[in-house]
Computed example of a mutant assay.
Amino acid sequence: MSEPSADESRIDRRAELLPEEQEAGSDDPQAQAEAILEESDERTDAPEETRHESTQTPD
């Protein structure tokens, strides 16, 4: 059996729901983790481009 890739391991770790996520529930923690990490990677890779789309960062 092959070892999971770094991305798969990262997704698996993030798919472990935080307490507040457990309380709210999740139909698909794996898909939720993939979406969260994809968005995070976009913000990390292109901070200036994504900054204007964010409601959390001031202009």
Score class of each variant (00 low, 15 high):
1 M>Q: 05
1 M>V: 11
1 M>A: 10
2 S>K: 04
2 S>F: 10
3 E>A: 13
4 P>S: 08
4 P>W: 13
5 S>D: 03
5 S>F: 05
5 S>T: 15
6 A>H: 05
6 A>K: 07
7 D>F: 07
7 D>A: 11
7 D>R: 14
8 E>A: 09
8 E>F: 01
9 S>T: 13
9 S>Q: 15
10 R>S: 12
10 R>M: 09
11 I>C: 09
11 I>R: 14
11 I>G: 04
12 D>T: 12
13 R>A: 14
13 R>N: 12
13 R>C: 07
14 R>T: 09
15 A>S: 15
15 A>K: 04
16 E>W: 06
16 E>H: 05
16 E>Y: 04
16 E>M: 07
17 L>A: 06
17 L>N: 04
17 L>G: 02
18 L>H: 10
18 L>R: 15
18 L>D: 12
18 L>S: 09
19 P>D: 11
20 E>G: 01
20 E>Y: 11
21 E>C: 02
21 E>T: 01
22 Q>C: 04
23 E>Y: 02
25 G>R: 01
25 G>M: 01
26 S>M: 00
26 S>E: 05
26 S>D: 07
28 D>P: 01
28 D>K: 01
29 P>K: 06
31 A>G: 02
31 A>F: 03
31 A>I: 03
31 A>N: 05
31 A>E: 12
31 A>Y: 01
32 Q>I: 01
32 Q>M: 14
33 A>K: 09
33 A>C: 10
33 A>R: 10
34 E>F: 04
34 E>N: 01
34 E>R: 15
35 A>E: 13
35 A>K: 13
35 A>C: 07
36 I>D: 14
37 L>A: 03
38 E>W: 08
39 E>K: 12
39 E>W: 09
40 S>H: 14
41 D>G: 00
42 E>N: 05
42 E>Q: 09
43 R>F: 04
43 R>A: 00
44 T>M: 02
44 T>E: 11
44 T>W: 03
44 T>S: 08
45 D>S: 12
45 D>T: 03
45 D>M: 08
45 D>R: 08
46 A>C: 03
46 A>K: 07
46 A>P: 00
46 A>F: 04
46 A>S: 09
47 P>N: 02
47 P>T: 01
47 P>V: 03
48 E>F: 02
48 E>Y: 03
49 E>V: 10
49 E>Q: 11
49 E>R: 06
50 T>N: 07
50 T>Q: 05
51 R>H: 06
51 R>K: 09
52 H>K: 11
52 H>Y: 06
53 E>D: 11
53 E>T: 08
53 E>F: 08
54 S>A: 10
54 S>F: 08
55 T>N: 13
55 T>V: 12
55 T>Q: 14
55 T>W: 15
55 T>G: 08
56 Q>C: 06
56 Q>F: 12
57 T>A: 15
57 T>G: 07
58 P>E: 15
